[in-house]
């Protein structure tokens, strides 16, 4: 059963679920792969969407979600707690926002 309105995200469980972490990624992107690995290795619970396999409607939503938060259309883009947006795999910034 697929809810047409809701975008499909993939949840990666982790012990640290203090923050709500959402990553927009590209399935073939090496920086996105590193960012995913970084979160997993640090036991951070997160959800991600691979934008390249999304349909147009979801791509539009993602574009809006990024631009409305002042982000750029580069991947990975990580949104923490619906507020902080981090463009690219920026380990320092991720550590700071995630308090790790």
């Amino acid at each position: 059963m697929r809810d047409k309105k809701k975008m499909q995200t993939i949840k990666v469980p982790g012990k640290n679920n203090k923050h709500k972490v959402l990553m927009y990624a590209i399935s073939t992107c090496v920086w996105c792969k590193r960012a995913k690995k970084f979160l997993t290795e640090n036991n951070i619970e997160y959800e991600y969407v691979d934008v390249d396999v999304c349909n147009r409607e979801d791509r539009d939503k993602i574009r809006e979600a990024i631009l409305s938060r002042g982000g750029r259309l580069s991947y990975p883009t990580v949104i923490v707690d619906d507020r902080s947006l981090i463009t690219g795999f920026n380990e320092g910034q991720l550590r700071e926002v995630l308090e790790i």
Binding site: W31, V53, C54, N55, R56, R59, D60, I62, R63, R72, L73, S74, G88, F89, N90
Partner: peptide
């Protein structure tokens, strides 16, 4: 990681232009 050099106007097309479906 380095900053994206591709202009925004070109990036944005990847959304509007992308066809339907997966």
């Amino acid at each position: 990681p380095i900053p994206e050099r591709r202009p925004f106007q070109k990036q944005i097309r990847s959304y509007a232009a992308s066809g339907e479906g997966v």
